[in-house]
Design a binder for these strands. Structure first.
Length: 590
RNA sequence: GGGGGUGUAGUGUAGCGGCCUAACACGCUGCCCUGUCAAGGCAGAGACCGCGGGUUCGAAUCCCGUCAUCCCCGCCA
């Protein structure tokens, strides 16, 4: 090794030791006869002193180096002179007096500062990702991600899981997200697809008698990007045989609870065991199936007060089967008309036709867009239901239930951000269960699976598949953290007849079902154990653990919003020779 | 596929019709300095204001187009 110690590992106990260090020059402070270098490696920083009275050669060399040069130094650890300690630095009690200094590699001036955490244009960061990753914050993210994955591997290994790799080149499944296709050279006109998840393969591993499988699995989806979406992402994919819903939930809960306690002691777990909500409860109280339960502002049904209130907008919505619900934003009663208008514009994005408001001022007087239509009695009832106090702002949406949920659910999060109620030091894990098995797709006029094709309905709801599919519940469970879906799983179907019934229900023709999923149906007839699993998203979890806004910050080499790798320049046109070999022709379509 | 925001030295920003021959901070270069740690002092270099077109006596500034990028919606079984 070219070094004996990590820069950041040196302490008072090393005083008197001869050490060799190697790393990057974080900063140089040249005082003439003495030059200080902050030498940085993965372990941290240490001050290196080149004194012309000790070694003229080392001092000259130290004066020449610049930020980000790679250097190696040999010297002795010594206590810093009295009063010269730096309490802000873990190595601040000591310094290394240099005898010799070698420049291992010079460096250009970096395009952005490596030694401080300044905001830098994302495009520039991604182009020089190898420099971006040198920065302290990104190093911490990479390390945390490693620790999370390592914890998962150890935890599951102790419980008898086998880590098994499944293919990256697999078969296209035209349902769901768009596939990345890979042309076959050997088979003209045929394509592999990159897996959107190893779902089918892990189920087949259960048929194979593996019983407990996991994989840190790369998944691919050719959809547009978001802060929490990348074209390729990583899931902890796991599957178990002979289990029921509770078994998977208990295992997952123990894994992440103990992980957080060990790796993130500075974070508070909101609840232990995790809170559970049924899908219906989540929708009723939060308007979404991935609620952030770190704060209140829950949705309240005010149909009782709105019916017969005299306010036509509310009444007509109720008459046509819609909902009138509201949020009480405590302490926002002083919001200006302009601020309320902004909130109105916000909910309109999500289909709401308007936002009715009632602001109660500190003396109990109110101003409102609708109260003048209300009878005194009905208004009192409304305030009662909303538990309105002086200083509160009540906001209402009246519409069909889906629109009310979407707009108020979003408004709740918006207010949570605005009022600073989403405490980043708190981790609020949550299970959402009892999802509807299928949901009605209006455009296509058919039932869509609400999770995936292989999810089992609740045993007692199987008869409903024939009589009233919309009422059947699935054996699905979603893991939610701080308002973000971080994992979904289910108990699977392990019976061919039931699987075919489900294919039929969602309108998949038997011929098509056989062509796409024949291998699954056939496998189910060879002694398939009851099984189930879950797939928590590693990127999303680590992102939240690291207090980052984008999963890009916890992925070493992510794509940008346009799904490009701006460092290497991918995707890029193929050579004509390659296209020919792959039997492909690029056609202009526009 | 749709909507919105942003493009000004290496980085972060200011300037938003004439005072711009484009400012500030950090960084960079040179010189000085033996106790700094965001070192300090002095001097200096560095920008066709994303690109193309238009309006105007005059455009970094207004308009149109285009490209890039970020965010949101759709999409994401």
């Amino acid at each position: 090794m070219l070094k004996t110690h990590g820069c950041g590992d040196l302490r008072a106990e090393h005083v008197g030791r001869k050490v060799t260090l190697a790393g990057w020059v974080n900063r140089r402070r040249d005082h003439g006869g003495v030059t200080f270098l902050d030498l940085r490696d993965r372990s941290g920083l240490v001050q290196v002193v080149a004194n012309s009275e000790i070694s003229e050669a080392a001092h000259l060399a130290a004066t020449d180096v610049r930020n980000e040069w790679v250097v190696r130094v040999e010297g002795s650890v010594q206590s810093r002179p009295e009063g010269m300690q730096n309490p802000d630095l873990p190595t601040g009690e000591i310094e290394v007096m240099v005898d010799r200094l070698w420049v291992l590699n010079a460096a250009n001036t970096p395009p952005f500062p490596i030694n401080e955490e300044t905001e830098v244009d994302e495009n520039v960061r991604l182009k020089y990702r190898y420099l971006d990753l040198r920065r302290e914050g990104m190093q911490a993210n990479l390390k945390l991600r490693h620790q999370v994955v390592k914890y998962i591997r150890d935890f599951l290994d102790e419980r008898g899981f086998w880590e098994i790799e499944t293919p990256i080149l697999f078969k296209t499944t035209p349902e769901g997200a768009r596939d990345y296709l890979v042309p076959s050279r050997v088979h003209p006109g045929e394509f592999y697809a990159l897996p959107q998840s190893p779902q089918q393969l892990k189920q087949l591993l259960m048929v194979a008698g593996v019983e407990r499988y996991f994989q840190i699995a790369r998944c691919f989806r050719d959809e547009d990007q978001r802060g929490d979406r990348q074209p390729e992402f990583t899931q902890l994919d796991l599957e178990m045989s002979f289990v029921e819903r509770e078994d998977i939930m208990a295992l997952t809960e123990e894994l992440f609870t103990t992980m957080v306690e060990k790796l993130l002691p500075h974070k508070k777990l909101l609840n232990k065991p995790w809170q559970r909500l049924t899908y219906q409860e989540a929708m009723d109280r939060f308007g979404r199936d991935d609620p952030d339960i770190r704060f209140g502002l829950e949705l309240v049904d005010v149909g009782e007060a709105a019916g017969g209130s005299g306010f036509k907008v509310f009444e007509s919505v109720l008459e046509s089967g819609g909902d009138v619900r509201g949020i009480n934003a405590p302490g926002c009663g002083a919001f200006s008309r302009k601020e309320i208008d902004e909130l109105t514009e916000y909910v309109k994005q999500f289909g709401a036709k308007g936002l009715a408001y009632l602001a109660v001022d500190e003396s109990g007087e109110h101003r409102s867009s609708f109260a003048k239509f209300f009878s005194e009695e009905k208004l009192a009832q409304l305030l009662e239901i909303m538990q309105a106090e002086p200083g509160d702002l009540l906001l209402f949406v009246a519409d069909e239930p889906a629109v009310v949920n979407e707009s108020l659910g979003r408004l709740r999060l918006h207010l949570g951000d605005r009022l600073d109620l989403r405490d980043p030091s708190v981790l609020a894990f949550l299970w959402v269960i009892d999802f509807p098995f299928v949901t009605w797709n209006k455009e296509e006029a058919r039932w869509d699976p609400s999770h995936h094709l292989f999810t089992s309905p609740m045993q007692e709801d199987v008869p409903l598949l024939d009589s009233d599919p919309g009422k059947a519940r699935g054996q699905q469970y979603d893991m939610v953290l701080n308002g973000l879906e971080t994992g979904g799983g289910s108990i699977r179907i392990h019976d061919r007849a039931l699987q075919e019934k489900v294919f039929h229900l969602i309108g998949l023709e038997p011929g098509m079902a056989r062509e796409r999923f024949g291998h699954m149906l056939e496998a189910f007839e060879f002694g398939t154990p009851p099984h189930g699993g879950i797939a928590p998203g590693i990127d999303r979890l680590v992102r939240i653990f690291a207090d980052e806004d984008h999963i890009r910050e916890v992925i070493a080499f992510p794509k940008n919003q346009a799904a490009r790798d701006v460092m290497a320049g991918a995707p890029s046109p193929a050579e004509p020779r390659q296209l020919k070999e792959l039997h492909l022709k690029v056609v202009d379509t526009d």
